[in-house]
Design a protein around this nucleic acid. Structure first.
Length: 304
DNA sequence: GCGTCCAGGTCTACC
DNA sequence: GGTAGACCTGGACGC
């Protein structure tokens, strides 16, 4: 089985990154917490599909070993595609030092730097992150998993089981009725179909939105112009794209603010929550997410 | 087995 | 700028 070695910066911690938010539980990712293995079905530009296996025990300081199933050997071009995708998914090249310097100044948040948390698992494409975020809106996490799982079955099958994430073209080729029948995502189906159609027809191009030179206000405006993407969804997308100066306040964040920060008293308004995170400036969105993750990162389930 | 209620975030219409 | 009601699914609950 071919393997690849990714070089990683000294502050990179694989497992906190892999399980840093819920994406690891959404196909075509899988996550085995007991054995600490992250997998991902990856489709090359020529359509071939492989399974990437990333065991936490193969992550040494400064490097990360990737096992590639499904091909006897990799061409240099294939190795390059996998490497570029994983560096993006694991945010390996994100400079976290300003964030860690900031949280070290706050006793409540020093654990974040000690653990090496803060990098978030993203998808290889912004299209996939948009779809998954849309499926987190106005629903429970279990429902999100079910809806995304049904969407992924529309992708190309992998010989040993599972599917690659479907392209916008694949979704757009279905009628809205057929899509709704298949994915059972309710009113979200129409938003997904519209997004896929706009991407498939090249009326909309989103990958260029990753350019960090785009001001946050402009990026936020672009995301919110998409049907189905409100304040929470836009804030979540911004985080996955490396912009942390926006919050993504949902019911979970409100509960964490009430229970962990405000002595059991609910915020009178989201503005109150925003005021709490304001001092964290350009990193406030990530600090807010770390508050949500704190209980998990300090649980036996994580530290086993 | 059936009916009802509820949770979740966004959109639209209206004030 | 703020608010009310609709949107949709599936789990929980009572009968």
């Amino acid at each position: 089985m071919p393997t690849l070695t990714l070089t990683t910066p000294p502050d990179f911690r694989f497992w906190p990154t892999a399980v840093g938010h819920g994406w690891c539980d959404l196909p075509p990712f899988t996550c085995d917490e007991d054995s600490r293995v992250l997998t991902r079905l990856f489709q090359f530009t020529d359509g071939a599909i492989v399974r990437l296996v990333l065991p936490a025990h193969d992550a040494a300081p400064g490097s990360l070993l990737v096992h590639v199933e499904g091909l006897p050997a990799l061409t240099p071009a294939q190795s390059d595609q996998i490497t570029r995708a994983l560096r993006r998914c694991l945010e390996i090249d994100r400079d976290m030092s300003p964030f860690y310097a900031l949280v070290r100044q706050h006793p409540r948040y020093q654990w974040i730097a000690q653990l090496g948390a803060g990098r978030l698992l993203a998808s290889p494409t912004l299209w996939e992150d948009l779809v998954k975020t849309l499926m987190t809106t106005n629903t429970t996490w279990n429902m999100t998993i079910q809806m995304v799982s049904r969407i992924v079955t529309l992708g190309d099958p992998y010989a040993a089981g599972g599917h690659a994430f479907p392209t916008p073209q694949r979704i757009a080729a279905l009628s809205l009725d057929d899509l709704n029948t298949h994915i059972r995502a309710g009113y979200r189906g129409a938003y997904l179909h519209e997004l896929a159609t706009r991407l498939a027809t090249a009326e909309l191009e989103v990958e260029s939105w990753r350019d960090l030179a785009i001001p946050s206000d402009e990026l936020y405006k672009r995301i919110k112009s998409l049907k189905g993407f409100g304040d929470y969804a836009a804030g979540n997308l911004m985080r996955l794209m490396g912009h942390f100066d926006r919050l993504a306040t949902d019911t979970e964040c409100r509960a964490v603010y009430r229970d962990s920060i405000n002595n059991g008293v609910p915020a009178a308004h989201d503005r109150e929550i925003a005021a709490y995170y304001q001092p964290f400036g350009a990193w406030r969105g990530l600090v807010q997410w770390m508050d949500v993750m704190e209980r998990y990162f300090k649980s036996e389930r994580f530290s086993q």
